[in-house]
Design a protein around this nucleic acid. Structure first.
Lengths: 167, 167
DNA sequence: ATAATAATGGATATGTTATGTCCATTATTA
DNA sequence: TAATAATGGACATAACATATCCATTATTAT
């Protein structure tokens, strides 16, 4: 029971896109290089973000990924559901109906109480995720990123992404 | 990203143990038969519950499993952690330190904000689980179990568990 | 138009975890 | 002493996450 590592990549990718100057698509190759991630698999995660409408894509030269909405309007829950899917974590297989004492399904009017209790806890989790936006995460990130890294990152993007931009 | 099916079995097993007359150990064979579950694999789940101190075991004839505490004192969180482990679901691999712009680990004073946000949501989930006891679940279960099933269950236990008890 | 760039989506391979089974051992009761 | 029942280790299988590859489509610059 743990989240896929791809989720971590996806959220960090969104956080990075949120820091880019507006209207500057970031190609997958640079994203993968920036985090030292395997590009083909990262592609799968970005595809899911794209299909979920969280990022938009621009094909061709000078293309890449951009956020589809303002960071304030992208929640952690949306990113999590884009990658891990919308399904509940606790699956009820209705074992209460099985065995020698089970009765016909129609006699069970409500979902099993165990499932409902588990789902209630999941709802609390989702609520917290829905209350956290990419802007909130950005804010946390700014406070904790070492200044050295920020400087290096700016220089790196200058060299790799924006080279020739001003020629 | 979903819970193991064994978790469902474990919680239902505890709920069943909670309904047994006090001091009556329920052997694994009957538990498995009652829910139509594969006994050897159910054994693994019960072992975890036993190691976590949630159930106690009695070996030998007339042995089996009994709850180690009153249902009020067993929480959903304890059962979940017994089966799925205590680890966090979101694992932070610190990819912020990777790549061409990462700096030495000592410069990062706090855990990554993305991880902290995910963990905050998990804390809300755990809090809800910790607030739900086996007694609460029992209460929900009683309200939703068809009377026919209750009758069949009592008869079945009379026939299988308590036979010869009063001879 | 053409060449180069970049995302898409399908197919496939690999590795890890969950699921399931088996058995020898230990503990307990009749 | 024989039967019952949990324990824990070893092992097999199935499902899912991770990873790679490639042909295709879309776009931009020349």
């Amino acid at each position: 029971m743990k989240h896929s590592e791809g989720l971590e990549w996806a959220i960090h990718s969104c956080a990075l896109l949120a820091m880019m100057p507006p209207g500057t698509p970031l190609p997958r190759r640079l994203l993968a290089e920036f985090f030292e991630l395997p590009e083909p698999y990262l592609a799968k995660q970005l595809q899911k973000l794209s299909q979920a409408g969280i990022v938009e894509t621009r094909r061709g030269p000078r293309g890449g990924y951009v956020l589809a909405r303002k960071p304030e309007d992208i929640t952690l829950l949306q990113m999590v559901e884009a990658i891990d899917g919308p399904d509940r974590h606790f699956v009820c297989t209705e074992i209460r109906r099985c065995g020698p004492t089970g009765v016909a399904g129609k006699h069970y009017t409500r979902p099993c109480g165990i499932a409902r209790s588990m789902w209630k806890a999941e709802a609390a989790w989702r609520k917290e995720l829905a209350a956290t936006s990419l802007a909130d995460i950005q804010h946390l990130g700014m406070a904790e990123t070492p200044p050295e890294q920020t400087a290096k990152a700016i220089a790196w993007f200058q060299a790799n992404l924006l080279q020739g931009e001003t020629e």
